[in-house]
C-alpha cells in the first residue's frame, strides 16, 4: 500500500512534469485567434539588416514557436501562399534561403513575423492584411523550424510530396547569427 501510494505520488509528479513540457508543444488551438493587435513589439527602427536580436519578445511568440500544430499549419500555408515561389522549399532562389544560419532581418520568430507582415526591400512583399495574424505567426514558426531551430519534438519530419528538403526534425540546428555585412542585402 505504501508502495502504491508512493507510486501514485510519483505518477502525479511525473505527469505534471510531462504536462508542463508537453503542454505548449502539443496544444491544439483549433480556434487560432490571438489578440489581433498588430506586430506590437516589433518596431521598424531595429529592423535594419544585421541587427542583433534585441527585439523584446512578443508574448505570442511562445505560443507559436514550439507548437507542433502551429508549425504544421505554417508548413501548409507556406505551400498555399506560394512562399516557395521565391524561397523555394527553403533552399532559396529569388529570395534568400531559409535553411541556413544567415538571417538578414533577424532569426527570432518575432523578427520573421515582422518580415512577413511588413515586407523587406528587394522583393519581399508585405502581407499585412493579406494574411491574418495568427496564420503569419504559424508561417513564421514554420520558417524558423526550417533552419533546425524549432523544438525537435514539435517539428515535422517529411511532407507528403516530392522530397525537397531533409526531414526538418532531423536537421542540425543552425542558430541564427544574423548577417554582419549589410552590403550583402539583396539577391545574391
Amino acid at each position: 500500500m505504501v508502495a502504491s501510494a508512493w507510486g501514485g505520488r510519483m505518477f502525479v509528479v511525473l505527469a505534471t512534469a510531462c504536462c508542463l513540457t508537453a503542454c505548449n508543444r502539443e496544444n491544439r488551438a483549433l480556434d487560432a485567434s490571438p489578440a489581433e493587435t498588430g506586430p506590437r513589439a516589433v518596431t521598424v527602427s531595429d529592423l535594419y539588416p544585421g541587427a542583433p536580436a534585441p527585439t523584446p519578445s512578443d508574448p505570442r511568440a511562445q505560443e507559436y514557436e514550439g507548437n507542433a500544430q502551429h508549425i504544421a499549419n505554417g508548413q501548409r500555408y507556406y505551400k498555399w501562399f506560394n512562399c516557395s515561389g521565391c524561397h523555394f522549399n527553403g533552399g532559396g532562389g529569388i529570395g534568400p534561403p531559409l535553411m541556413d544560419d544567415k538571417w538578414r532581418y533577424g532569426g527570432s520568430i518575432e523578427q520573421i513575423y515582422a518580415s512577413i507582415v511588413q515586407g523587406r526591400p528587394n522583393g519581399m512583399p508585405a502581407f499585412k492584411d493579406k494574411i491574418p495574424e495568427a496564420q503569419v505567426w504559424e508561417i513564421a514558426a514554420y520558417v524558423r523550424s526550417l533552419s533546425g531551430n524549432a523544438d525537435k519534438l514539435a517539428a515535422p519530419s517529411r511532407q507528403d510530396g516530392i522530397r525537397a528538403i531533409p526531414p526538418i526534425n532531423n536537421m542540425d540546428r543552425a542558430p541564427p547569427t544574423g548577417d554582419p555585412t549589410p552590403s550583402m542585402v539583396g539577391p545574391r
Binding site: S33, P132, Q135
Partner: peptide, 14 residues
Amino acid sequence: PQGVKPGTTMPRVP
C-alpha cells in the same frame, strides 16, 4: 468560420 466548423482551414479574417 471556426465557430461553425472548428478546425476548418478557412481562418477567421478580422
